[in-house]
Amino acid sequence: MKMNEEMLNALQSVGSGGVVVHLTTCSADGVSNVVGERFVASYGDEHIVIADMFAQKTKVNLNENPVGIITVAHPTKARYWAFRGPCTIIMWGEDDDYDFHGVKAGEVLREWGDWATKEPPSEVPPDIRPPALCQRGVITLKVDDAYSWFPNESGKKIL
């Protein structure tokens, strides 16, 4: 499912005018996990990528249940979006030709596998900046479904 221009432009690091998002995953038996993510970008017009900085439970969940939801958290500016679809972590060491729903591992790792160098979080205040930024791979979500989380129309399809 192709995202629109507004979505593609908004899905970038907050320091570049983009957004902070939350990523939801869950275990195969339905125990949910939701964490905030600052390093986010659109990738092509059907995928969203996030830096995997040793997101422990996220990895365990995606290994057994490869589906996720990305919800815009801040700043919303009427961007009440939730994107749901197949999700995985493409990790350093993966075969370059490994293909996840149209994303080649080698290509996405070369572009987004060292996010802290490419887009250092210089706007983040010292008390909330991580002491070290180590990236294990790239969380990749293929957008299959998008709905509004705006309270009065929550669940309404937006793509």
């Binding site: 939801t24 195969a28 929550s154």
Partner: peptide, 9 residues
């Protein structure tokens, strides 16, 4: 129960 997520805000 089978692990299909839905998130609200």
């Amino acid at each position: 129960k089978s692990g299909y997520p839905t998130t609200i805000v």
